[in-house]
Simulated scan of single mutants.
Amino acid sequence: MTKPMTKTQLVAALADAMGADKKTASAALDAISEVVAREVAAGGAVTLPGLGKVVCRERPAREVRNPATGEMVKKEADKQVKFTIAKALKDSVNA
C-alpha cells in the first residue's frame, strides 16, 4: 500500500492538470473545501461529480459501552459526515 497523497502533492497535480500555477490551484482547493464544509454543516449535501457525495446525517442518542471499563454510557445525539463513493469511481478502480 502506498502513502496517501499530501496536500502539497495534490496542489501540484491540480496545477499541472489545470495548466495554472500552484497558488491558483491551492486557492481553488481551499475554496472547494470551504464550500463543502459550509454546506454540509448547514445540513445540506454536496455532490462532487465523478467522486461521490458528502452528506451530514443525524445520529440519535444511544447507549454505548466504554471499552476500558465495560460500563454502559448514554451518548447524546450528534451529527456524522458521510461520503458515498460514486459508481463511476468504483468502476474505474475495479476495472
Rank of each mutant, 00 (worst) to 15 (best):
L48R: 06
E58T: 13
G50W: 06
E63T: 13
V46C: 05
D16G: 11
V81Q: 11
T47E: 14
A42G: 11
T24E: 09
N66K: 03
A28M: 09
E39V: 13
A42K: 02
V46F: 05
E71L: 03
I32Q: 05
G52M: 01
T6H: 07
S26H: 09
K22N: 07
A86N: 01
K75Q: 15
K7G: 11
M18A: 15
A12H: 04
A68R: 12
N94A: 12
A31S: 10
E39L: 04
R38L: 02
Q9E: 15
A45H: 03
T84E: 07
R57N: 12
D16V: 04
S26I: 01
V93D: 09
K23W: 10
L29I: 12
V81H: 11
E34I: 02
V11W: 03
V35T: 11
R38C: 00
A68F: 06
D16Q: 14
P4V: 07
V11A: 05
N94V: 07
S26F: 05
A27Q: 14
K53M: 05
A28H: 00
T8D: 14
D21M: 00
V46I: 12
K23V: 14
A77V: 11
P67Q: 08
V40C: 01
D30H: 00
N66Y: 02
V93E: 07
D16Y: 07
A12S: 12
L51P: 01
A41C: 09
Q80I: 14
